[in-house]
Amino acid sequence: MWDYTDKVKDYFFNPVNAGVLEHANAVGEVGAISCGDALKLMMRVNPETEVIEAAKFQTFGCGSAIASSSALTEIVLGKTLDEALRISNQDIADFLGGLPPEKMHCSVMGYEALQAAVADYRGVEWRDDHEEGALVCKCFGVDEGMIERAVRGNKLTTPEQVTHYTKAGGGCLTCFEGLEAVLARVNEEMVAEGLISFDEAYRIGSMDARTLRQKTRPKGAETSKVEAKPIIALADLERAAAGTMVLEKPVEAPAVAAPAAAPRLTTLQKIKLIEETLESIRPYLKLDGGDCELVDVDGNNVIVKLSGACVGCQQASMTVNGVQEKLIAATGLPLRVIPVK
């Protein structure tokens, strides 16, 4: 049985705003009946103010799909269309106190229905290329479609790149075989399409799970005891996986065997480099409504202030780790990022 939060159960057992909304002027219909999920979101928008004055839903789907739909109708109420467009699927999941990784697609369906409904009101066509696949990495909730898009969009050819770009395989690693099967399949297709050369393509068995663990483990950092962690800010990952942005190739952190091997930077150079790197990450955090600001640099400790959506976000620690890895990669120094309030 799924580990649903009480709030999910409550919204499933006693859904609010279920049924048909009369005089709806913004209707979004999304779903994939083969997967057993389909949602019709109906909203009444005030043409003067563009405020959503009423919202109702009809859903064919599981418990969490119904709960996500009902929650969505509550979240959008009273918001303007522009405000509503900024609601992410994570906002829906957070509103419900979280969803099991296998069920995150239910919140994505809510997000898409909202986008479709607003497009319907504005008379523009809304197209979605979102396609789901079976869940591969349970630790980080990464499905086959997400891996495929990251592999295609960024021409990935090794499992560690997949881990860097999507997080899949960054946790318990029991998904290694599934992950490498998707990579090998997509690479084979890419060879056939002439996107990559035959020699570049990954083949099953070229790497084992232990090597992946070692390769994705942060290097040069003093935190060598830390388990393999994703090294890119979450926002980048989502966008890269969605294929809407091609990330720069993640830089392999230089192996800092001895302190002497580290590039010698003056304190000023170091701070400047940290500042520049942080600036390059901030746009992605901002896209998710968060921000990260440099407060101080004390030796190898980088003090930052997280704000906006980053505060209290379940993924905040992941973001900090992502920022830290970026900084380490850029400076070659065993930096530690410490968030302060």
């Binding site: 979004g28 219909e29 999304v30 839903f57 009809q58 859903t59 898409e112 197209r127």
Partner: peptide, 22 residues
């Protein structure tokens, strides 16, 4: 069924419901 976009009642044919992606 009251929540389902397909259901229109026992004596009625199911609603034509064609979501954006399938």
């Amino acid at each position: 069924r009251a929540l389902s976009p397909f259901w229109q009642g026992a004596d009625k044919a199911p609603a034509t419901f064609a979501p954006v992606y399938a």
